[in-house]
Amino acid sequence: MTTIQSVFERLQAQGRKALIPFITAGDPDPAWTVPLLHALVRAGADIIELGVPFSDPMADGPTIQRASERALAKGVSLRQVLELVESFRADDQQTPIVLMGYANPIESMGVEVFAGAACAAGVNGVLVVDYPPEEGIDFARILHRHALDPIFLLAPTSSDARISQVGALASGYIYYVSLKGVTGSAALDVAAVAARIPEIRARTGVPVGVGFGIRDAATAAAVAGIADAVVVGSRIIEEIEQSAPDQACAKVLALVADIRRGMDAATNASGGTTWAR
């Protein structure tokens, strides 16, 4: 069992849902990334998605684009992102880290080399936005060989056949993109999302996280009522962007802790759902 799987097992036993915050590595400065990661854990993060900056983030909205640009302006490379994970691991051996980014920096390093280095640094999963399952088969195999979970996206427009195709490759969790558009778009439609999740769980047997458009504790609570994990990204990046660097950790901690409380209140009330087949 991978670390990510064991997190979901534990949460399920507790009747709770996973909170997965996202930040971009190196934003606003590489020196703040490790403190921010620890702050996220203190605020109640179960898993953290760490964005790898890329010059052409085609699937991201303006907020995460700007985070990527700030990190690139500081010269942050994939190699440095791995070093940041390694420093985080000095004080935290528990909280899974999922790298989220685009194919080119990984292919530039070499997929095998990357998988080995990511495993050694303490990474637990990898989500490559522009590897849909048909282009990600070899990649998923290599990740599995290095005990890394390949995380795939599914969308409201994904057919049943594609859901099964993703289920055959994915482990850890599946990231369900809750709406049409890019990251940081308008609020999501909880009822529409709720209608799709049982189908995805049934076809894949993997926990389902929902992201895109989750901006506050109330929405996070609603999503926690139907999904196995809640992903929050752009809203956190906005908090970092609007804070003085030395205030960012405290601001992010307060925001994420508020979302955590909202989620836990909701799942206590509902008693949770199950992802296991």
Binding site: M58, V129, P132, E135, A155, T157, S159, V177, K180, G181
Partner: peptide
């Protein structure tokens, strides 16, 4: 059929664009 010219081409996009 999947848009490959040898090792080149393909469909390297987020899942959100696949149906389109």
């Amino acid at each position: 059929a999947r848009g490959h010219f040898g090792p080149y081409g393909g469909v390297f996009v987020a899942e959100t664009l696949i149906a389109a």
